[in-house]
Amino acid sequence: MNSFIGTGVALITPFKNDLSVDVQALENLVEDQITSGINYLVVLGTTAESASLNKEEKQLVIKTVVEKNNKRVPLVLGLGGNNTRDLCDELQAGDFSGFEAILSVSPYYNKPTQEGIYQHFKALSLVSPLPIILYNVPGRTASNMLPETISRIARDCDNIVGVKEAAGDMVQAMRLISQVPKDFLVISGDDMLTLPMVLAGGKGVISVIAQGLPAEFSKMVSLGLEGKPTEAYQLHYKMQQAIDLIFAEGNPAGIKALLSQKGSVENYLRLPLVKATPGLQQQIENFLKNFS
């Protein structure tokens, strides 16, 4: 699964002022990511506001990204849920042309036990036509996939190839890296912890800030994978304030504010999410003015 080593970017869904999907802005964003050196793209993840898109809009986003990408970089599709049976049906019936893997979040709201999490992903693995990357994000799901559970899944399910680890816990990340099989990808889901995780044996990141600073963040990850911590940390500290800023009022409000400052998209979100406050937008603008 070398396709998913390095920097993946969780794409936003740009909206126009009438809150319809801005296809042209999405195409431009895909082009900018690819030409700036990112390694792969994640479509319809949390950052895409996928929870507020209907089926037709999701298909529009998929069609737009697949066509604009034109097989230049690997694509990963976000497809998760807390109804295992429905998700299995969707995996069996879906058309995943243009994608190389599925990113599937741990079941949210239900708060399953570790055994329930294991059985959920085992069921998905039996029917998925594509490799699966797990997504552990306790801050959104209200349950934490423990390293022991992820390691068990990795050993028992051949087509589950990695995990986006976003617990925000470096100790847990190190335990995870030490326990999973060597060919199982531990991918950072936390921009601030990306470099330490890579240096500890992780394989890269699925990033939010890289969407706004793709060349710089990709370079940092590459340097980390090459075992060059001094040069990598120089870039990390240069971008550190931006990482804090874009998550200060939630995702994707922060990254949309940054991208709008760069002129890439218009700054619109769908309720219940709202745009960043004027104060935060000013801080992001000040960062970009001083970033070089």
Score class of each variant (00 low, 15 high):
116 G>T: 04
129 P>Y: 06
120 H>Y: 06
140 R>G: 06
104 S>Q: 11
161 V>M: 13
96 F>G: 09
141 T>N: 03
125 S>Q: 05
157 C>K: 05
102 I>N: 00
151 S>Q: 12
156 D>S: 13
150 I>W: 08
138 P>S: 13
152 R>G: 11
126 L>C: 11
143 S>V: 15
134 L>V: 03
104 S>M: 03
147 P>A: 15
161 V>I: 15
98 G>V: 07
138 P>K: 12
149 T>W: 04
129 P>T: 10
142 A>R: 03
97 S>D: 14
104 S>D: 00
159 N>V: 13
121 F>S: 10
133 I>C: 09
142 A>C: 05
130 L>R: 08
165 E>R: 09
102 I>D: 06
153 I>M: 09
160 I>C: 03
114 Q>E: 14
152 R>V: 09
106 S>Y: 01
144 N>Q: 14
156 D>E: 15
161 V>N: 02
143 S>E: 08
132 I>M: 03
117 I>L: 15
144 N>K: 15
136 N>T: 13
107 P>F: 07
114 Q>N: 11
119 Q>S: 05
164 K>C: 12
98 G>K: 02
140 R>Q: 07
145 M>K: 12
100 E>H: 14
140 R>M: 01
164 K>D: 06
100 E>G: 15
167 A>T: 15
136 N>H: 12
108 Y>S: 05
106 S>V: 15
105 V>Q: 04
154 A>V: 01
111 K>Y: 04
160 I>E: 05
159 N>A: 10
125 S>F: 07
104 S>N: 08
133 I>G: 08
126 L>W: 02
103 L>T: 01
167 A>Q: 11
135 Y>W: 08
116 G>H: 02
114 Q>P: 06
124 L>M: 12
162 G>C: 10
164 K>E: 03
112 P>K: 05
167 A>M: 09
137 V>D: 01
123 A>F: 03
139 G>Q: 14
130 L>T: 04
99 F>L: 12
155 R>W: 00
121 F>A: 12
135 Y>P: 01
122 K>I: 01
109 Y>V: 00
115 E>N: 10
130 L>D: 12
125 S>H: 00
110 N>H: 00
118 Y>I: 03
159 N>M: 10
105 V>D: 06
156 D>R: 01
159 N>H: 11
144 N>C: 14
119 Q>E: 13
142 A>D: 13
129 P>A: 07
124 L>G: 07
144 N>P: 13
131 P>I: 08
156 D>G: 01
163 V>Q: 02
120 H>M: 07
103 L>R: 02
141 T>S: 14
162 G>E: 11
142 A>Y: 02
117 I>E: 06
